[in-house]
Design a protein around this nucleic acid. Structure first.
Length: 510
RNA sequence: CGGGGUGUAGCUCAGCCUGGUAGAGCGCCACGUUUGGGACGUGGAAGCCGCAGGUUCAAAUCCUGUCACCCCGACCA
């Protein structure tokens, strides 16, 4: 058992932090609520960006960049929007530091209008769209931006909720209500497919209730994931903003009917929170488990030897295997690039930057096993003298910690790709099974309360209502996570009011 | 912002009650023996005891103030 990681059963919250620390994904920063994303953590974010960005481009979007600072007046233009974000805005009020009479630096040069550090960019982008859109011929506008945002949270947790975080926000403007609605659902599906096919996290697509929706949106859709401790986690949202922001910012165009009208806008985003979701959905008491498609390193080769003769023989076999998996030229390039370093990092896939590592460090093999296991690599390969003589090596799987013997001749690039795909399938299947097991039904409020106490999603008929939802949250800590799209049209008796209700999922959420 | 707690080596903490000038374990560095799932020995580096005042011959230790962090609440589209 890992000695630097608390078990999930002992202390789930501590386990989560220990896994992050052991895998060196992130660190605390000197500023409360902000985090440092370390190279291995950032590589996961880069993989997420790479995969999502491709999907955005494939659905017709382009990237742009809008400023970090937003005039305070912009935020107040949409009433619900400001109400939703006012409490968590960081504000820039001064332009410089000056030495005071006491010789200490103090803020000076007070700004005429305070600037808000963006909590999200609907407002600035709305302002710009108003200038760019004049005719129906200018529509649709399909822009995404990758950036940081800041929401001054009271209580923070690495990746899941930090004051500053990285995300992408798509902002589109359309000619018709229907187009905007189609866009909102299209991007929701992009998120679902991405979550499952890349991060191997099964999610449920649904609509948010009035109480839970984005401030300023007509409708908010979500993909909801379920973590191993039975708590739900919102993994991405897609909003149909109707004409709320186009009215507030005057995004008007002349339509095909010659009439001036307001555009219909949408926005959608996912953040570094997905890394937290990935950690909590898959990892175990031994440490991180990375879904193969975002793993910066897909396999490590660990040489095992005692004598110098064995060392020589084994080292050769390791290099040869790396050559079979990555190509001889890549191995040569890596050796040139890295000289005599103990970790030889060879590109397995140059497009994604994913590598295979040969671990030549002067450590005991057991230490190396734990080291890489905690970092979540999908596979570890052991090569010792017995393996070289027998023409086979040992492959260890991270997910189930099982091992198998593989003939050297069989180990090709395609072979490893297939193994990685299998691993992805297995991780996803395991998470899906957990998710399915964690959904239960309730026919009365009593039953709802009782089942919520046991964790997981509880499904029931409910008539959404702000006051009722607030009361339920007080009594159970749970919220309506979503009205699943799959059963959106089903109607039944609300477990609270007895009136006609919709099928919803309740859960305690992060 | 309320209630509770903690600040001493990179990490976890002892020392504080009863003032006398800095400790342990882990980690790190070097060397040697080891090496198919967390080895051991020897040596070494490392701390303005959160910060600022005060009491005292003398403060990690006592007093006052202050800052930061953690837990519980409030808050979290």
């Amino acid at each position: 058992m890992a000695k630097n990681i608390k078990t999930r059963a002992e202390d789930y919250a501590q386990w989560y932090l220990d896994v992050i620390k052991a895998a060196q994904l992130a660190d605390y920063s000197p500023v409360r609520g902000c985090m440092v994303i370390r190279p291995d953590g950032f590589a996961i974010w880069e993989a997420i960006q790479r995969e999502l960005d491709r999907r955005f481009k494939e659905t017709g979007h382009v990237n742009a960049y809008f400023p970090l600072l937003i005039p305070q007046s912009f935020l107040t233009k949409e009433a619900q929007h400001i109400e939703g974000f006012a409490m968590e805005c960081a504000i820039v009020t001064h332009s410089k530091l000056e030495k005071g009479p006491d010789g200490k630096l103090a803020p000076a040069g007070e700004l005429e209008e305070p600037l808000i550090i963006r909590p999200t960019s609907e407002t600035v982008i709305g302002h710009m769209y108003a200038q760019w859109v004049q005719s129906y011929r200018d529509l649709p506008v399909l822009i995404n931006q990758w950036c940081n945002v800041m929401r001054w949270e009271m209580r923070t947790r690495l990746f899941l909720r930090t004051a500053e975080f990285l995300w992408q926000e798509g902002h589109t403007a359309h000619e018709t209500e229907q187009e905007a609605q189609e866009e909102t659902l299209r991007m929701l599906e992009v998120y679902r497919e991405f979550a499952e096919d890349v991060l191997a996290i099964p999610v449920i697509k649904g609509r948010k209730t009035e109480a839970e929706k984005f401030p300023g949106a007509d409708v908010t859709y979500t993909i909801e994931g379920l973590m191993q401790d039975g708590k739900a986690l919102q993994c991405g949202t897609s909003h149909n903003l109707g004409q709320n922001f186009s009215r507030a910012f005057d995004i008007k165009f002349t339509g095909r009917d010659q009439k001036l009208q307001h555009a219909w806008t949408t926005s959608w985003g996912v953040s570094t929170r997905l890394i937290g979701a990935m950690i909590m959905a898959h990892s175990d008491d031994e440490g991180l488990i990375l879904p193969p498609r975002v793993a910066p390193c897909v396999a490590v080769i660990i040489p095992i030897f005692k004598t110098d003769d064995e060392h020589k023989k084994v080292a050769e076999a390791c290099l040869k295997l790396a050559g079979q998996l990555c190509g001889e030229t890549e191995v040569e390039a890596a050796r040139k690039r890295q000289g005599g370093r103990d970790l030889l990092s060879v590109f397995f896939d140059k497009l994604t930057g994913q590598t295979v590592i040969i671990d030549n460090r002067d450590m005991r093999p057991g230490d190396k096993q734990y080291h890489w296991e905690q970092r979540g690599l999908p596979f570890r390969i052991e090569i010792g003298p017995r393996d070289v003589d027998g023409g086979a090596f040992v492959l260890k799987r991270r997910l189930d910690r099982g091992k198998e013997t593989v003939q050297f001749g069989a180990a090709t690039r395609d072979w490893l790709r297939t193994k990685l795909d299998e691993a992805h399938g297995a991780i996803h299947a395991r998470a899906r099974e957990h998710q399915q097991r964690s959904i239960s039904d309730a026919a009365s409020y009593e039953e709802l309360k009782q089942k919520l106490a046991g964790g997981g999603f509880v499904r029931c008929f409910f008539r959404p209502d702000k006051a009722t939802e607030a009361r339920i949250k007080e009594e159970t800590k749970a919220t309506v996570r979503c009205i699943p799209l799959e059963t959106e049209h089903e109607r039944g008796k609300c477990v609270v009011s007895g009136q006609e209700g919709q099928k919803v999922l309740f859960a305690v959420a992060y």
